[in-house]
Amino acid sequence: MRQLIIAVLVGMVSFSTAWAEESVYERVPEMKHPADNKWSKEKEALGKMLYFDPRLSGSNWISCATCHNPGLGWGDGLPRTIGDGQKELGRHAPTVINSGYFEVQMWDGRKKSLEDQAKGPIEATGEMNQNFDELIRELKALPGYVKRFTSVFGTNSMTIDNIAKAIATYERSVVSKNAPYDKYWAGDKSAMSSSAVKGMNLFFGKAKCAICHNGPVFTDSGFHNIGVKAAGPLKVDLGRYNESKSDFDKGAFKTPGLRSITQSAPYMHNGTEATLKDVIEFYDRGGDIKENLSPFITPLGLTAQEKKDLVEFLIALDGEPIEVIFPDLP
């Protein structure tokens, strides 16, 4: 398997210059909704209420938006998120931006859909620490929620699965698009600076970023050990290995998307890199921990100007502002 990946790597690097000059661009497609959770305006509005409602937590002070705050790039701005009882958790809160396009959710991919993911933090002891039965009792005591659930899902429809479906529907509305990068490929060559264009060519070429960060939202939805050092309460984090039990996945984490990446600092699964400049420096030195390191990660030999150009390209991936008006809660 590792030999196959190395062969793929060699091939990708060989053709990377052609990618930069020809058909690298993929626009963000229309969001697709699951067959068993079709979109409606009313369902999205209900999901938005639930997303911002701290009563979904056992303490009644943590909402989805506490750790995935629109004002903080749909994350929390912390290296590692703070959960129930003000305790620091082991990983950085991933952004919700474009999560509806991801094949799996969470840094280790243990959740297969947004619906599945939405339920996880609610009941997790270290996160929102809410008993599902207790949550349903609390929400059923609020006529405004009962009315909205009935309108969206039908009579006697207030269940944890429908709560998750509503939240997932709202999260699929959080999309970053129409960035300077998109405008550049639509024909407006003034949308990106010359530095950003150089950074784009580096991204798809010498810097090898596109090996993992590819597609319309710049992720392969795969898992890679890129050599991130331990930080925070988790002294050892095996990442994807905890799910796959494959030695190849030890220390591997899901490739994050890069659209609007400037908004969701700090970076890496445990928040070890404070800025995009730090991220570029990390990759340029070939990571920090060599054990089980992906063969994709090697020193890059970037010049100081090339590093600046790469940062400028990442800035050019910032989409139009995602406007959010805080909902009135029942």
Rank of each mutant, 00 (worst) to 15 (best):
L258V: 01
R285C: 07
P266A: 07
F296W: 15
F313H: 10
G319Q: 10
P266H: 08
L300N: 06
T275M: 07
L317D: 00
H269K: 07
I297K: 00
I280W: 04
T262P: 04
T262R: 09
I297Q: 01
N270W: 06
D318E: 15
D284V: 06
S294F: 00
L300K: 15
D288I: 07
D309V: 03
I297V: 15
L258K: 00
R259Q: 04
G301W: 14
E306H: 08
S260R: 00
F296R: 02
P295T: 05
L276Q: 09
I280Q: 09
A304H: 08
K290T: 04
G257H: 06
T298Y: 01
P256R: 09
L317V: 01
R285H: 12
G271W: 10
T262V: 12
G271V: 11
G271P: 07
P299I: 14
I315W: 01
G271I: 13
P256L: 10
T262Q: 13
D318R: 15
I261N: 08
Q305M: 04
L276Y: 08
I280S: 11
L300I: 07
I297C: 01
D309M: 09
T262G: 00
G271R: 04
M268L: 14
L293R: 03
P295D: 08
E312V: 03
I261Y: 11
N292S: 06
I280F: 03
A304N: 14
E291M: 03
E312T: 02
S260N: 13
L310W: 06
T262C: 03
T298R: 10
L293Y: 10
P256S: 04
I289S: 01
D309A: 13
N270H: 07
D288C: 00
Y267W: 13
L310K: 08
K277L: 07
A304W: 02
L310M: 11
S260G: 00
E291G: 00
G287T: 05
N292Y: 08
Y267L: 09
K308N: 13
P266E: 02
D309T: 02
K308E: 15
A265E: 10
F313N: 09
D284A: 13
K307Y: 05
F282S: 05
G319L: 11
